[in-house]
């Protein structure tokens, strides 16, 4: 009897001890696991930090007032890259100018008008799939349709339209998010006062959603400015004598210019320096734009308290 009791006690104690030991090994696992996670975030930050660091350090020495404002000279080895900056500006504005009205209209239809129907599902499906199309395929489409069939040639127009189509899904989803954030109660209040559906959209929904829509547009602006593949065959050229004079001219663009400097031309060692400069300008441009958008968005979230 006694022995049995003692045994039982022992095994009970053993269990407790096992439990404790288990706890300790759990703690060790947790420490190891958390360390690994910490290492992975360090990796992420290290990689990305080093990209910015190298480009900033090498690029800053190239950048000067002349670099920003002058046209290239002596077979791309001297002078500035102003036409590429201007070209990127035109292409980006053109693309957003095309995609924003379309995308906003689409978002308004989906959020405000659409009854649940097959048609709406098809539209949603095509937006999702359009968002997943590789950028080079947009380039092929732009080449076949805008450059060839419509006869716009390799031009700002073709490039803007191609980039615009690529930006469309992003603009739609940003606008949708902003429209959905407008409280239902605002719409009800407006309708209950005898406003029509369109009046409610125009006077209440859109003004309320406007800051959110703008943020989304800015975010997409940054993405469009940095795209290269869609303009390879539709808009970009390595060298123009001066600035573009119509929407039918070819343009230089910053991202394409980096690629061209690294792969074409005759003086790679000099060109690499210029490429660093272009990369730094592009990086600053894109980072500033997206940082701006993110700050704006956080401010809005705070004011809406959601």
């Amino acid at each position: 009897m006694h022995a049995e009791n003692a045994n039982r006690n022992l095994s009970f104690m053993g269990k407790t001890m096992g439990f404790k030991k288990g706890l300790r090994s759990n703690d060790i696992t947790q420490t190891i696991g958390f360390t690994l996670l910490f290492v992975s975030i360090l990796f992420t930050l290290f990689f990305l930090g080093s990209i910015i660091y190298f480009i900033a350090v090498q690029g800053i020495s190239v950048i000067s007032w002349e670099f920003l404002t002058e046209v290239p000279r002596k077979a791309m080895t001297k002078g500035g890259v102003a036409p590429a900056i201007v070209g990127t500006f035109y292409l980006t504005i053109g693309a957003i100018g095309f995609a924003l009205p379309l995308g906003l209209a689409c978002a308004i239809y989906l959020c405000e008008y659409s009854p649940k129907s097959i048609m709406v599902n098809i539209i949603r499906l095509s937006i999702n799939n359009l968002a997943g199309v590789p950028s080079i395929v947009f380039g092929l489409f732009g080449l076949a349709v805008f450059v060839k069939v419509f006869g716009f040639g390799v031009s700002i127009l073709s490039g803007s339209l191609t980039l615009g189509i690529m930006a469309l899904p992003g603009i739609i989803s940003a606008s949708q998010e902003a429209l959905l954030a407008v409280p239902q109660s605002y719409k009800e209040a407006s309708l209950a006062l005898g406003a029509t559906h369109w009046q409610t959209i125009k006077k209440v929904v859109l003004p309320t959603a406007l800051p959110g829509i703008l943020t989304g547009v800015i975010l997409n602006l940054g993405r469009v400015a940095g795209e290269t593949a869609p303009i390879l065959f539709t808009a970009a050229t390595f060298y123009t004598r001066g600035f573009p004079d119509s929407i039918f001219s070819e343009v230089m663009a910053l991202p394409y210019h980096i690629y061209a400097l690294m792969t074409e031309g005759t003086r790679p060692e000099v060109q690499a320096g210029i490429a660093y400069g272009c990369a730094l300008i592009l990086l600053c441009l894109v980072l500033t734009i997206s940082a701006l958008a993110i700050i704006l968005r956080q401010k809005q979230r705070r004011t809406y308290g959601s």
Binding site: E188, A189, S190, A192, L193, G194, T196, K203, V204
Partner: peptide, 30 residues
């Protein structure tokens, strides 16, 4: 027209994020 003739006040106050005056004038402007 029906909604103009039958006004409604909701559970939670739902003024538009506009000025007091704009809120008031809204029904007339539309």
């Amino acid at each position: 027209d029906l909604r103009r003739r039958v006004g409604m006040v909701f559970q939670k106050p739902n003024p538009f994020p506009k000025t007091i005056y704009e809120n008031m004038a809204y029904g007339l402007i539309i």
